[in-house]
């Protein structure tokens, strides 16, 4: 659901900042998807210290959580980069309307 909202934002909104927000929405939606993949009903968080481990402890799958961490970091970097680009565009073009920032066309 988040992903669809994000896509809709990127496709239709003309203000560049809204496009950036839509992009971030897509990223976070996918991250949520990753986390929900690794869910086992009734499992506990996959952090253990050595004296708690027993053969029948039931953990949530840890791999997606690793993936999500990585992906959140990447999403943050991308958002930072995009926002800095938007700032520079505003400096140079004087506008952040996507219909006007289109000097490279054709």
């Amino acid at each position: 659901m988040l992903i669809v909202l994000g896509i809709y934002t990127v496709v239709t909104k003309k203000n560049l900042i809204k496009t950036v927000i839509g992009l971030s929405l897509i990223d976070y939606g996918v991250n949520l998807l990753i986390v929900s993949v690794g869910f086992n009903a009734g499992g506990s968080a996959p952090i253990f210290t050595f004296n708690e481990i027993k053969p029948d402890t039931f953990f949530v799958d840890p791999v997606p959580q690793a993936l999500t961490l990585t992906s959140i970091v990447i999403g943050a970097c991308v958002t930072a980069m995009t926002l800095s680009l938007v700032i520079k565009i505003k400096d140079k073009y004087g506008t952040i309307d996507a219909d006007k920032v289109r000097r490279l066309n054709g």
Binding site: L23, I26, V30, V63, M81, V101
Partner: peptide, 29 residues
């Protein structure tokens, strides 16, 4: 002229591509 604009378009489009790849990877997992 246009370097920033090109970079902006590239990052938006590239990120959407990468997000698709990530979503596909997740589903495979």
């Amino acid at each position: 002229e246009g370097a920033l604009e090109a970079a902006f378009k590239y990052i938006v489009i590239g990120s959407i591509g990468s997000s698709f790849i990530l979503a596909g990877t997740t589903l495979l997992y």
